[in-house]
Simulated scan of single mutants.
Amino acid sequence: MRRQTKTGGINSAGSSRVLRLDPLSLPVSFDAHDIRADGGVRSVELHRERVVLRRAVHGMRMAVNVRVRDFRGVALRDVNDAQMLVLAHRDPSLTIPLCVSSDPDEIATAWQMWSDIFALPQLHEDVREPAPRRRRHNAIRARRPKFLVRRRCGDLLNAANIHQGEREIIARN
């Protein structure tokens, strides 16, 4: 089993080439940028059936194991003057970068290969700012007060409460 270098691709760590992973030589281990992790780096192991993310946050080391079928698909994003392929997840912190290139033919070929290998759909994403958080409405306001919840509602006009031969007496001023 052949492993690729930590910087991605088959090139050495000192290479000036951008991120480009080979989908035909899985499993792949590499480091990716993570702003929440200690040192700003997380370790990614990419297999055909699963992805393992390893990082440390505030000194606590963790490993997250995610099945490939839990990802939404292989997405194409526009970044600056290039395009980037990512393994897109509903949780943006679990999204994995796969390839960055400014050559449209190379990106199209890689997009198709990654999609076929993982059996995931091809997605086109535009990177945009996240939507503002919605304010939650006050759910407690619609509830009855606590002392009213404990009380039982009476049935004064229910026929079972009026005995035979008696008349209901209603006092009026």
Rank of each mutant, 00 (worst) to 15 (best):
T109Y: 14
M84K: 04
L87Q: 03
E125M: 15
P92G: 04
N173F: 14
V127R: 11
E168F: 15
Q83A: 06
G14V: 05
R54K: 14
V79E: 08
A119Y: 12
S115N: 02
A37N: 06
D116E: 14
D78F: 06
H137I: 11
G9Q: 01
E106C: 01
L53E: 04
A160H: 13
G165V: 07
S43F: 15
D31P: 09
R69Y: 08
G165E: 08
T5E: 10
H137G: 09
P145Y: 07
A56G: 04
N138V: 07
H47F: 13
R167Q: 09
V52H: 03
V41I: 13
A119R: 12
R77W: 05
E49R: 14
P27V: 04
L76Q: 00
T5R: 12
L53G: 08
L123C: 00
A171Y: 15
Q112Y: 06
R55L: 07
L148K: 09
L94Q: 00
R2L: 13
R90H: 03
H124L: 13
D34I: 05
R141Q: 04
A108C: 02
L94S: 00
L24F: 15
E125A: 11
A119Q: 10
R172P: 01
G73F: 06
V52Y: 04
V100C: 02
L156P: 11
L123V: 02
G154A: 10
G8P: 01
A142P: 06
R50W: 09
I35G: 05
C153P: 11
V51L: 00
R150Q: 14
E166Q: 15
D38N: 06
P97S: 05
V127A: 12
T109F: 11
D103Q: 02
R90K: 08
G14R: 07
R172E: 14
D126Y: 10
V41R: 11
V64W: 01
E45S: 15
C99G: 06
G40W: 09
Q164P: 07
V66D: 03
Q4E: 08
G9C: 02
H58P: 03
D105I: 07
R42W: 06
A110N: 07
A171S: 12
F118S: 04
V66H: 02
V51S: 01
R90L: 10
I162K: 15
D70P: 05
L156H: 12
P23I: 04
S115T: 05
V86Y: 01
H89I: 09
N173T: 15
D116M: 11
Q112N: 08
R36E: 09
R2G: 06
L85T: 05
N80V: 06
H124Y: 12
V86I: 04
A13F: 08
R151E: 06
S15G: 03
L87T: 03
A139V: 10
T95E: 01
P145Q: 01
M84D: 00
F118P: 01
H33S: 10
R90C: 07
C153V: 14
L21I: 06
R77F: 02
P27Q: 06
F71A: 03
V86R: 03
D31T: 14
R152Y: 02
G39K: 08
C153R: 15
I107W: 00
D78A: 08
I117V: 15
Q164S: 14
V79G: 00
H163Y: 12
D81N: 04
L98C: 03
V149K: 15
E129Q: 13
T95P: 00
